Amino acid sequence: MSTLRSLPARGNGRAAPRAPRRGRARAVLVPVAALVVLVVSVVAATTLGPADVSAVNVRDVLTNHLGFTDIPVRVSEDAIVWNERLPRALVAACVGAGLGVSGAILQSLLRNPLADPFVLGISSGASTGAVLVGFLGLGAGVLGLSGGAFLGALVAFGTVLLLDRLVGGHGDRVILAGVASTQLFSALTSLAIFAFADSDESRGVLFWLLGSLEGVRWDDVVLCAVAVVLALAVCLLRARELDAFAFGDAVAATLGIDVARVRALLLVVTALVTAVLVSVAGAVGFVGLVLPHAARFLVGPLHTRLLPTTAALGAVFMVWVDAGSRVAFAPTPLPVGVGTALVGVPAFVALLLRGSARSRFARGTA
């Protein structure tokens, strides 16, 4: 009897809104909490390294440079914090946020849960550009390694767009064109390394190809931050169109969305921000693949919630992966791309197992 009496209370129309309210509150609290954790993570990561620097020293250096205080700090500690570790932590946060958002966009745009920023061949193109500058010196006086990587990434993306246009411009075709572009530029990179590299050159370039944040400076912070903020703003403005893409191109078109134009815009934005990040940090994998799935688990699929949460989670993830990579084999740093793979693969397997368990449960209760 008590069970029967409780049923009307659940369906009397007044308790029903609780779940949406809880969902909205969760969607606000998760990114806010992630931002707080990000600030704490950046400060904590700045203290880690071969030279001991306390959190108090980090605070003093930050407030001094921001003009709030004038506390005496050792010149060596000021240089370590302000010129080395803090820019590195901030670039890591930008890389994690940008690649995470790019992965979320591509997974929704292409309706493929395995899509990530490198599915467009951008990473392979950047690698080829960096190798050509590093080994052959093509434009080295003007471009540098990062500039060559950026141009290579744009050439690779242009190749994908050309192939996509030739075969009809469909989401699946974009992925296939990206696979073809990836293989092409990977082969060109391997050919250049095999034919022209010596031991000293190959070590530096190969370290960059594995993902590296060594030597980043404040101008890199500004470049990455501007690219990520602009890309996130554009994608948030298109959040409702992205929600519609989840139901297919036909449904999106019936809702009045210019499917081809919106897809082209978001692909270009994703490619540009990825090219900027890869040109600075090298090939950093698994961030754009894993973090969007984790964000969906926390706040659901709506992009107004998903994109900020993915950005915040990606930033926190990369800050700690970079910190761990920096101290794991100190004083020799581990390439950050190796760290993301070591952490990302188990996380992705866990997500796959969780999804499989949910599917089995759904089939069992159907």
Rank of each mutant, 00 (worst) to 15 (best):
G96Q: 00
L154R: 07
F297E: 03
N64V: 05
G23A: 15
L143W: 04
L206V: 15
V40Y: 14
D172T: 12
V343D: 01
I80G: 06
L209I: 08
V133R: 04
A45Q: 03
V226T: 13
V32A: 15
G314M: 03
L334T: 13
V345S: 08
F194P: 00
D198T: 08
L120M: 14
A312C: 06
L223A: 12
S356E: 06
V58P: 06
L62M: 12
L210V: 01
T332D: 12
V262C: 06
T182D: 02
P50R: 11
A16E: 09
L242W: 07
R24E: 08
R296V: 10
A295Q: 04
L237Y: 14
G98P: 12
P301T: 13
D258M: 03
V30F: 15
V222G: 07
R22S: 08
V321A: 02
F135I: 08
F317A: 04
V205R: 01
A19Y: 09
Q183V: 13
L237F: 14
G137Q: 05
V228P: 03
N112W: 12
V155R: 03
L154P: 07
L236V: 00
A197C: 13
G300A: 10
D322A: 08
L255C: 14
F286H: 09
A187R: 08
F317G: 04
A9C: 09
D200C: 03
P87D: 03
R24H: 14
L90M: 10
L223N: 00
A250K: 05
G144E: 01
G285Y: 05
S202Q: 11
G355H: 06
F196I: 08
D116T: 11
V205N: 00
A231I: 05
F329T: 10
G300V: 10
A79F: 09
V221N: 07
L145W: 00
A93K: 02
L289V: 13
R85A: 11
A115M: 02
A264E: 05
A275I: 04
R240W: 11
P117G: 11
V345F: 01
A366H: 11
V43C: 14
L306G: 08
R363A: 15
G256N: 03
R240T: 14
N64E: 07
A323S: 15
A281C: 13
E201L: 10
M318E: 02
V73K: 09
E241C: 10
V284R: 00
S146P: 05
N57M: 12
V287N: 07
D243K: 01
R203T: 13
F247L: 15
A311F: 14
H170D: 12
R5D: 12
R21P: 00
F361W: 15
L143A: 08
S202M: 15
E77V: 14
L302F: 07
P50H: 12
G23L: 08
G137P: 04
F207R: 01
D164I: 00
A252H: 02
V221I: 11
G282W: 05
G337K: 02
T340I: 03
L38E: 01
S181I: 03
V155Y: 12
A115H: 10
G144R: 06
E241K: 02
A187V: 04
F135R: 05
L114N: 09
I122C: 01
A252V: 05
V167R: 14
